[in-house]
Structures are given as structure tokens and as C-alpha cells.
């Protein structure tokens, strides 16, 4: 199938992009890497009147590296992260996750911000950035705001971003030297959508323990009491956590999420 008709603009600046989006209203859509939107357009499941291509905006390609955090431009590609071309404050988690996203040809085009804004529940960055408690800098017609990724996703393919807002960058806290992380993704073959994701980060120096379940029906599930995962009867606990995350016991989804969580925790050791 071929995409329906749309207009296309490639603004030179973020300000121009925001203006185009505002003028376009609900029928304007941001095109970042296009690796998720492209298929949706071809299947005619997305039908925007206007695409605003932000992939090359300089404001979205800048990265910063300071003592506490790293800020990655939203248009940084998965491949750039995989290859270590941008700073990684997580001792390798980002590169590891990036390498597992789709396929290299997709990673060369797909962007961090695009993936977050697309909010596919089975996608990796949404889960990873919630795990790391990353923050987004979001630009809109009325200025900028900062948003926790945890507050971004409202449901499958649905976020709290207004149609005329653009993710500019993602700020990731720097993990301490002795921080540990674990990321377990269950998918049926490489590049396929995840059936279940679980991720844990333990950063004692910063007093941080976070654990997240991904590939949920909607937003990633932040496990309320992650400390409990670090000791105790993990089997019963994992099952209980997954039940509380919304999956009914004795379902496939429940089983694979519970196993994935157990394996993620085991991987932390």
C-alpha cells in the first residue's frame, strides 16, 4: 500500500517547525526518523495533511555531557547510540538497548525522540527512559516545558504531547560508577516487537533503585517497591508485581512478564 496524500515541510529551525505545526493543527504531524510513521503511512493508518520533518534540526541533534547528566538530542539515531557516538551515562545500557532495536537499517534512521513520541508499548526507549527516570525537554508554541518520561505515555501510541509540541532532548541522570543495571527483553526473534520487557537499575551511591515492566498494554509499569526485588522470594514477588501491574494471573502475558522480571533481577547480580 502507498501512503495517502500529504504535504511536506522541512523547516530549518525549531521555531519554524513549531510554527508549521501550530498552523497545521491536529492534522499536522512530526516526522522524525520515520521508521514507525513510515509503515503507518504506507498502511494508511496515519493520515496527516502535513508532515513536518525535524530529523535534521540542529537543536535536536545537540548533546551535552555534565557531571550529573547527559542530554541527548531527540534526533540522535539509535545507531549513533549503539556505536557510542554520543555520551552514555549508563555504563553501556544505552548501547545495549539500542543494538536490540529493530534492525540496523532501521536504527540508522530511527531517532530517540521519535521512538518516545511514537509511544509504542513494546518499544525499548520508552521503557529504558522510564527506568532511568529521564526527563524530556519539550518545545511548543507557548515555550518549553520539562516532562518526566514516566509522565509521557498515556496509552498505546498515545502521549501527553500536544500535536504542536516537539521533543527537543532527553536528559538522563548519570549513573554512579558502581551502579548496576539489567535489561531483559523477550521477543520471538531479533527485531521483533517485545512480548515482555523488564529492567532494573540499582545505584546505591545515589540511593536509586528502579524497576520497570515494559511491553505493557499502555505505559511502562514502574514497580512501586523495587527494593523488595533485591532480596527475598523473587518467584512469588514477581508474580504478585505482574498481577498488580494489570495482567490477570494465568495468562500468557502474566507468565512471560513474571519470568522476564525474574530474569532481569537475576541479571543484576
Amino acid at each position: 500500500m502507498k501512503a495517502p496524500h500529504f504535504e511536506y515541510e522541512k523547516p530549518a529551525t525549531l521555531a519554524d517547525a513549531l510554527r508549521l505545526l501550530s498552523a497545521g493543527g491536529d492534522n499536522a504531524k512530526v516526522l522524525a526518523g520515520g521508521q514507525s510513521l513510515g509503515p503507518l503511512l504506507n498502511l494508511r493508518m496515519a493520515r496527516p495533511d502535513l508532515l513536518v520533518d525535524i530529523r535534521t534540526l540542529p537543536e535536536l541533534r545537540a548533546c551535552e555531557d555534565d557531571a550529573d547528566s547527559v542530554t541527548l538530542g531527540a534526533a540522535v539515531t539509535h545507531a549513533a547510540i549503539e556505536d557510542g557516538q554520543v555520551p552514555d551515562p549508563t555504563h553501556g545500557l544505552l548501547a545495549r538497548v539500542a543494538q536490540g532495536i529493530a534492525y540496523r537499517a532501521v536504527r540508522n534512521r530511527g531517532t530517540l525522540g521519535g521512538s518516545l513520541a511514537h509511544a509504542d508499548p513494546a518499544a525499548d526507549w520508552v521503557t529504558t527512559m522510564v527506568l532511568l527516570d529521564a526527563e524530556l525537554r519539550v518545545a511548543g508554541a507557548d515555550g518549553e516545558r520539562v516532562l518526566r518520561v514516566e509522565d509521557l505515555v498515556e496509552g498505546p501510541l498515545s502521549t501527553c504531547l500536544a500535536p504542536d509540541e516537539i521533543i527537543v532532548s532527553v536528559r538522563l541522570p548519570r549513573l554512579s560508577a558502581d551502579a548496576r543495571w539489567s535489561y531483559y527483553k523477550f521477543n520471538r526473534k531479533p527485531g521483533e516487537f517485545a512480548e515482555a520487557i523488564a529492567a532494573v537499575v540499582h545505584d546505591p551511591a545515589r540511593g536509586v533503585v528502579r524497576a520497570v515492566l515494559g511491553a505493557m498494554e499502555g505505559a511502562p509499569h514502574v514497580i512501586p517497591d523495587p527494593h523488595a526485588l533485591l532480596g527475598g522470594d523473587i518467584d512469588a514477588l514477581a508474580a504478585d508485581i505482574v498481577t498488580r501491574s494489570g495482567f490477570a494471573p494465568d495468562t500468557y502475558e502474566h507468565r512471560v512478564h513474571a519470568v522476564t522480571l525474574r530474569r532481569a533481577v537475576a541479571g543484576l547480580a
Binding site: K2, Y8, G38, L43, D53, R55, A79, A105, N108, R109
Partner: peptide
């Protein structure tokens, strides 16, 4: 035409890419 099979893979700016989900205009 949805970026999965890879038959349309070519290079854009020196890196492999899917040409079925890239728009010529972009």
C-alpha cells in the same frame, strides 16, 4: 513496504536504510 523484510535496503549517506519507508522528498 513496512520496513521488515529488508528487500529494499540501500544506502543513504553511506548507511543502510529502508527505502520503502523513506520518502524521496525527505
Amino acid at each position: 513496504e513496512h520496513g521488515v523484510c529488508g528487500a529494499c535496503t540501500l544506502e543513504i549517506d553511506g548507511a543502510p536504510a529502508r527505502s520503502c519507508i523513506a520518502f524521496a522528498v525527505a
